[in-house]
Design a protein around this nucleic acid. Structure first.
Lengths: 224, 224
DNA sequence: AAATAACTGATTCCTACGGACACAGTTTGG
DNA sequence: CCAAACTGTGTCCGTAGGAATCAGTTATTT
């Protein structure tokens, strides 16, 4: 995975036949496959076939599969948003919800972005936007980074659960069978799930978001 | 991925030759490979070869690779701990740190547990322990579940960063090259990273943990 | 003790994957 | 006009997960 591929401008050479494909088109075809059938269904063959070309044609545009996935992720996450909310708390809420929306629209981006990898321009742009929202707060650089990292992690986790159709209600039904047989080993879990089922409403994202921002607010208040 | 495989007791049949392998031994071999070379290096061939057997022998003990990974995850996460701390906040802190420790010991468990999958007994046990710690709080069942889910997600995220050797310091050096060229596009990011580098200390986990628990504390205080 | 049912690990085969490489056709600059 | 540079394609390789089958081993049954 080369950083240059994500960041460097790819100058179109002047000689030779016109390219029949574009990197963007290939990436979009890959995104379509991943959206419809998951990241595992994305293979060079499959993407090439969807565009009506052979597998090896793609290697004229992309060094390898890892780079293709990286470009797909960048395009799926998309350009960083311009936040309209005023005040750091409202801005962070807006940012988190927008990020969650992007993840929900392309759930495979989460498994595609585990582990060490180079960040693309769009991803860095998202960080920049969030950092601007907390710039006014009396926090250190590390604390500002940590704050938005925790928020992003929270959005990722919830998107992942939603993608697996594991809201509270679905989770209880999925685990219900197991719990029916081994429920006595997990009394707290049984009780909590029973309560969650009757209460209804899947507010996990908003709950975590509120707790996190409450925590930040408490820290800020403590310092001033 | 069958739930029965993780939960059902595998009754040893009485007839036939003694099995030369055990599921636990196979899983441990897989864990050793994953610890040393990452989850991608875990193949049926590789695991079998490490035990001195052929690939297909493993299918006598495990239905497929997905189930092998699931068993590996269960054993790597390990038995849920008995918390020694008293008070919900200290207990949750202890639980989170222990969970982080397990993730750090076997970083591949994180990529192995993305997406929909059945939970094993140990994983449920960890949830049970954390839920017991928040049982005393005036929270609904859904709120209790959300609380520990956010904490677990935070531990996962930090373990993932640590596994990629992406502490604040390493992160700045990794992104430094990109930022040297495109730094003007990301002034907030540049400033935050510069600050984090001089401040030193990689307190991301403790920072997020403290913010989250502060948030929970604020909610609890509001209710009483 | 002998027979048999049940289980063992090994062998062979298949499909699909990512990727290296050489090839023939096409476009453009000198 | 022709050679350099670039295009897409076909062939080949190693490795992956897994199905089907086979011969050998063992405990229960008769």
């Amino acid at each position: 995975m080369s950083v240059e591929f994500l960041w460097g401008g790819r100058a179109r050479p002047t000689r030779g036949p016109k390219p029949a494909l574009t990197l963007e088109g290939i990436a979009d075809a890959g995104i379509a496959v991943a959206d419809a059938e998951g990241l595992a269904a994305v293979s060079m063959q499959r993407v090439a076939a969807d565009r009506g070309y052979t597998k090896m044609s793609l290697y004229r545009y992309v060094p390898g599969k890892a780079e293709l996935i990286a470009v797909m992720v960048e395009r799926a996450i998309g350009e960083p948003p311009a936040l309209s909310a005023s005040g750091w708390r409202a801005a962070l809420e807006e940012w988190s919800r927008l990020l969650l929306g992007r993840y929900l629209a392309h759930p495979w981006t989460i498994e595609a972005t585990v582990g060490r990898r180079p960040l693309g321009p769009y991803e860095m742009g998202w960080m920049e936007v969030a950092l601007a929202a907390v710039a006014e707060l009396p926090l250190s650089g590390a604390e500002r980074l940590d704050t938005i990292a925790v928020l992003a992690g929270h959005a990722r986790m919830l998107a992942q659960q939603a993608a697996a159709r594991l809201g509270e209600a679905e989770m209880s039904t999925a685990i219900a069978a197991v719990l029916r047989e081994h429920g006595e080993r997990f009394p707290q879990l049984t009780a909590a799930l029973a309560g969650a089922a009757t209460e209804g409403g899947d507010q996990a994202f908003e709950y975590g978001l509120a707790r996190l921002l409450d925590g930040v607010e408490a820290l800020v208040r403590n310092r001033s």
